[in-house]
Design a protein around this nucleic acid. Structure first.
Lengths: 229, 229, 229, 229
DNA sequence: AATGAATGAGGATTCATTCAT
DNA sequence: AATGAATGAATCCTCATTCAT
């Protein structure tokens, strides 16, 4: 049944490159594999073009499966993008390792370098996530909600790590500190996206790590003063 | 002919409540007014939904003018969004005033407060701009290019201000410093967008201002060391 | 721009017959005319295939206007079909003339003949309407609601006519009588649809007219008895 | 592998509540049971939405069996709906019992009451059947053909019953009489569907029964006259 | 007897845009 | 300066159906 391949050649135009990669030719293609291919394609496109910009037909062209197969695996576009977030986050998280020795500054710098690496290695997660986070459409997509959830989870985990470096912080202080830390990382990611090679991400994240630690120290000092008076 | 009344009523239904069509009925409607109404609508929608999410017909529905009128005022969607960026930036810039007295820290803190104000007062410019900045579509929209230009311009201006506070910085150092400063502001804007009332933007931007000044001081110190050795 | 005609030739297949009838060639085609052509096509198709069976693309093929033009004139498929009902009813109603002389039986028979004529001349209205009436989908279409409304209006008008023939009926009796009268007409319409030429609609409707009048007489007699006792 | 649980859950979501999947898990599920569940679901949906409105996937969602299983039991959608008609008709027929004593009027009234009961108890058969009967699509579905057949059979049977009450009618007269009788029943069914509780089906069918008997009497009288002259 | 996966065709609807007036 | 009408391409998603297991 090669006509099916032929008959759509024209559809792809600019994206034909990826077409018909793996297809186990008509049948019994393992569902998990297909699901994975769809997610790969969707991740790539969504990270480039955002939620609205990710058309099912672009995903189809990139993964080689017909749109209807995409809908067999995912309820709708929203569910697909939520799954993209889900999977990217898992990958993303696994790239991390909390350093457990060295001075606070050293540890923070290690985290900075890890962040830089994670960001540079797989920028898709953050790029898509931040785009989703910025959107404010009337009916919030599941995908956005899921990103905010996993982001929150990440912030919590990061807070725990920070607490082991700089003990004595209250919950509120920890929240403020991690918010500031993440903000720096988000902002620097954007700067890198805009500035490209002219931005030294490792250096800037290191600067930021120091700023975070400095602020933590200042917080503790103030706290000590308060309780001394 | 009651039908003619009925027949197209539905077109703006969902938004009919919005902005009672001001049209100077039967006289030549003032072009500038129409243009303004279109830009208002487009700004609001684009800041909520990004580039792809901004459909001409959504703009039509919000501003009450027919699509063809939008095309009379703007060449195409891209030009419309570029104009949105343009106008928003002007508004945005006018909110700023470089402080010219006080210690560097004091001046930096004043800037931090101004930034917080600008961000809270008209978040549309940044929200849309950052969405555009994050996108990576094959053919770059004018709107995105324009945002990057005005952002660069802003960064230059900000650099000048910074130099007057902390003289002696090299061009490269200044670039690094302003990149870091802007990154913090971008990241904190996003944190505020996500966290809402639980995020104290003024406080965090103040923290960041101090971090920037600290880093500038450190740079100068290192520079001095270098030239001393 | 003849390519547009060519380029879709294949789409129509079985329905190409009607294509490209009137089109004032690219521009300034009067809106009312187009609207009418769409309604004509939709009426014909809907009367054959019912609500779900009426695809926009079948309407497009029959009226020669692209789907997007159909959506310019009608909000959605539902509104289109509601408009079909609306217009058909107007036509339908105008075919009637209440007889004002002769005995009740004669007048009723005149109405029977008129009904037969209306049904045979333009069966579209009733066929579509009854299909809609029978449907029970979870979210009721506007089109169905509109049919029920106009049907109710018709029943009321018919009741008035009946009252002038057989005065003295109570409102409840009138309602029962018209319900029965309409039911016979609906049922006989269906019988005619099924049986084709083997069903003599005029004869059967005449039989029914007599049955209605007989029942009315019986009602009055009972009423008289009741008040006498 | 928590994902596998998540991944397709949504498929019947909207109806998950419905009919807890009875499947005799892990043992050979009894084919007849599955077939029955499919027919139940299809009957319900088809009676609500008609032929086109009955999608295989709606049936799948309601009966809990995958679409491919539906195709294992039925050749295609058309065969499924024909089977629905078949089964519903059997149920329907079994509800009838020809009265064999009493005056013609009494017997006719007994039939009227039985009809009312049948209609009120299982309206699905008639509702779907009438929808099918009204449709006029280019390629007639088996399901419609089957309905017309069983309806014809029913009309014949009813004719026989009528003949035993009112002997002496010619075949042609019998045909006319049963056509009128059925038309009344169809029409009153529709009236009941539209009017709900405001329509007293038993009363109206009784009125109709009398009308039918009256007409039969008139026919016989005319026939006698004719042959007398 | 049953089902997970796939698939091409077609569904309704919206898109950005144009053009005659 | 503005707009009613139109339009081809694209949108998301559902359709009926098939096939290997």
């Amino acid at each position: 049944m090669y006509r099916s391949i032929q008959s759509q050649e024209w559809k792809d135009d600019a994206v034909a490159d990826d077409e018909a990669k793996v297809k186990t030719r008509r049948g019994r293609a393992d569902g998990e594999i297909s699901r994975g291919r769809i997610l790969d394609a969707a991740t790539e496109i969504a990270a480039e073009r955002g939620y609205e910009g990710t058309s099912i037909s672009a995903v189809r062209a990139k993964c080689g499966l017909p749109s209807s197969s995409i809908y067999w695996h995912f309820k709708d576009k929203d569910a697909l993008l939520a799954a993209v977030i889900e999977r990217s986050f898992t990958t993303w998280l696994s790239a991390w390792e909390l350093p457990d020795e060295g001075s606070p500054i050293e540890r923070a710098e290690s985290l900075a370098v890890q962040t830089a690496k994670a960001v540079l290695d797989s920028p898709d997660f953050l790029r898509l996530g931040l785009m989703l986070a910025l959107e404010r459409r009337p009916v919030e997509p599941q995908a956005r909600a899921r990103f905010l959830e996993v982001r929150d989870e990440a912030q919590r985990l990061f807070g725990e790590g920070l607490l082991s470096m700089v003990p004595g912080l209250s919950q509120a202080q920890l929240r403020e500190l991690t918010t500031y830390a993440l903000a720096g990382s988000d902002g620097l990611f954007i700067a890198k996206e805009i500035g490209g090679d002219s931005v030294d991400l490792v250096a800037l994240l290191t600067v930021h790590a120091r700023a975070v630690i400095d602020h933590a120290a200042r917080m503790l000092a103030e706290g000590a003063e308060d309780s001394a008076s």
